[in-house]
Amino acid sequence: MKKIIIASLLLLTISSVSFGQAKFLSRAGHIWFYSKTPVETIEAHNYQVASFLDVTKGTIAFEVLNKSFKFERALMEEHFNENYMESEKFPKATFKGQITNLKDINFSKDGVYNAIIEGDLTIHGVTKHITQKGTIEVTKGKIVAKSKFGIKPEDYKIEIPALVKDKIANPLDVTVDITYSPMK
């Protein structure tokens, strides 16, 4: 009897350690995009991405300030904010969604898992329902989520003038790389 009590107590402590933490956060996530054409290579990085991940519900959300994207050239940054994203009118891009294959991911066991994420991506005031693939890496209680996908400017009503069309790749490569820590 005693053994059973000790065993069940042990189990309880173990499970509360592994499943006690459901909510994970990141305030310094990295999202960047890359466009390569014969004419020009454009790259912009944002290291101030806020993200939220609930591993029991599978909900995931991002918030990105357009102005936090850093480009190599001031002129690219200016065009991005003023002509394309219209950052004064639409200061941020957001994503709210769900990991749809949550059963395939064991957040309490170290490993790299394939994830399918579905949800609403809002850029330039236009919301699109998207499904993308990514990976979830679990190491010692830390979670790293990664994904790479293409975005077509016209899907989000971003007009690229004919004159510069051959300077900007379509679709653009977007890479997401977020390291989460448990919410305190």
């Binding site: 956060l25 305030r27 101030q48 200061p91």
Partner: peptide
């Protein structure tokens, strides 16, 4: 530095970069 706006997803946070 450069102020890039307000983020509200986790907490209300004013962001400065550079």
């Amino acid at each position: 530095g450069q102020c890039t706006g307000l983020q509200e997803l986790i907490a209300k946070e004013v962001i400065l970069i550079r």
